[in-house]
Amino acid sequence: MNGLTTHILDLTHGCPAPGVRIELFQINSGQLEKITETRTNEDGRVAEPILSSANIETGEYELLFHIGTYFEEKEAGTTEPPFLGKVAVRFGIAEPQEHYHVPLLISPWGYQVYRGS
């Protein structure tokens, strides 16, 4: 599978993170241009690639994960405003023919991201 995909794992509850809103932006000349928006499914994944192999281009992108709302709905004891309301992950795509997978591991107080397979 080529294109851009992601999944989110909730480390606080030890499960996938369903229903998290995700926005994708392309960065052109320092400006964010929104490309699309989606939500994670029950498995914490997106049902379809966020960018298909036909639409992916070389360049800089940003995924914006709205985790504050997710943890508020889970009644995870977060503060108002939440410590991490949104997590922005900027990354570059150098080889558009490859598969880019950007997993996010989250808690109300921290996160980890990496390029998956």
Rank of each mutant, 00 (worst) to 15 (best):
S29Q: 12
C15W: 00
E60C: 14
G14E: 13
G59Y: 12
E23Y: 06
V20R: 03
E33P: 00
L4G: 05
T6S: 15
F25P: 01
A54I: 12
G19I: 00
F25S: 08
G68D: 09
T38A: 14
S29Y: 05
G68T: 05
L11F: 12
S29E: 08
A47W: 01
T6M: 13
L4Y: 06
T69A: 13
E60Q: 15
Q31C: 07
E62I: 15
G14F: 13
H7I: 01
N55A: 13
R39A: 02
E62H: 08
L63F: 13
I8C: 04
L24T: 09
L24A: 03
T5S: 10
G68Q: 07
P49V: 03
R21G: 03
I8M: 07
H7E: 12
F25C: 07
E57S: 13
H13E: 12
P49F: 04
N55H: 10
H66R: 13
T6W: 04
C15V: 10
S52F: 01
P16Y: 12
L51K: 05
A47I: 13
H13T: 10
P18S: 10
P16K: 12
G44C: 11
I8T: 02
A17E: 04
V46R: 07
E57L: 14
T36A: 04
K34T: 09
I22M: 06
D43W: 11
L51D: 06
H13R: 15
I67F: 09
N55C: 03
A17P: 01
P49G: 03
H13L: 12
T38R: 09
P16Q: 11
N28H: 06
G30L: 03
Y70T: 05
E42M: 11
I8A: 05
